[in-house]
Design a protein around this nucleic acid. Sequence first.
DNA 1: GTACGGCCCTGTTAGC
DNA 2: TGCTAACAGGGCCGTA
Length: 269
Amino acid sequence: MPELPEVETVRRQLAPRIEGRRVLDAGAFASAKFVPAMDVVGATFTSTGRRGKYLLIGTDDNRELVVHLGMTGQLGFHADADHDDPYQRAWWLLDGQPEELLGFRDVRRFGRLRVVPAGDYSSIPTLAAAGPEPWDEALTPELFRELIGRSRRPVKTQLLSQRPIAGVGNIYADEALWAAGIHPRATRLGIDRAERLLAELRRVLGAGIDRGGTTLRDYRQLDGGTGTNQFHLDAYGRAGRPCRRCASELRSTVIDARTTTYCPRCQRA
DNA sequence: GTACGGCCCTGTTAGC
DNA sequence: TGCTAACAGGGCCGTA
């Protein structure tokens, strides 16, 4: 499940492969989620950015191709159009010697593509309302606490909403809450706990990037490689196993239809 | 504005 | 063995 570290890993690998290259042709699976791929034919990719879990590929005509990988989305280069792959949802033929095909594969079709005027995300609600990037200097513990405090919903729900901070999904939310010793259903954070949670979010996301992402099943890097962060998880996917801090049995609950793993002893409500 | 449930999707796994 | 149902979950949308 691509979250910020996975998207950032793909972005870093993608940038040198697409910037300065013109889109000669494109195609897409017949769905509104993917047909915007064809809107960039004739344009040249000029930049490769990221906001939260969204990839932002700038073009020379002042637009952006916005890519969300969803649950199972993968970007990769192919020698030719792979007509045998039933899960190829979009592709772009890039100029150069040789010409290359960038493909977007997405088994479950939770991913989506959009082409927007550069910087205008009004048609993408979650992106438009996204909170600060984790390493934004303006994101102080005080601001983070205030953003969390704007709703009385559980802190886990808040993190998944992308509003207090951009790019956190189910895996890194569970990891950061475990590391900070905060119960996922906590609704109020004092400044100390807000500061701790922010620090742990930055740490787990940074470690995720350093390890090339978390590959549990579908996530792949641009070259098809896997990340290694899955070998360093303390909470996510470990329900029923002992807490690495206190040896209590980790529990599993459901928040917002997402499996949530936590330590009932270390993470008090 | 906010909260919440339902929906989109399909491969994998559990249960009968 | 073969079938069915449950499950995984990020984002969007309709409703309250």
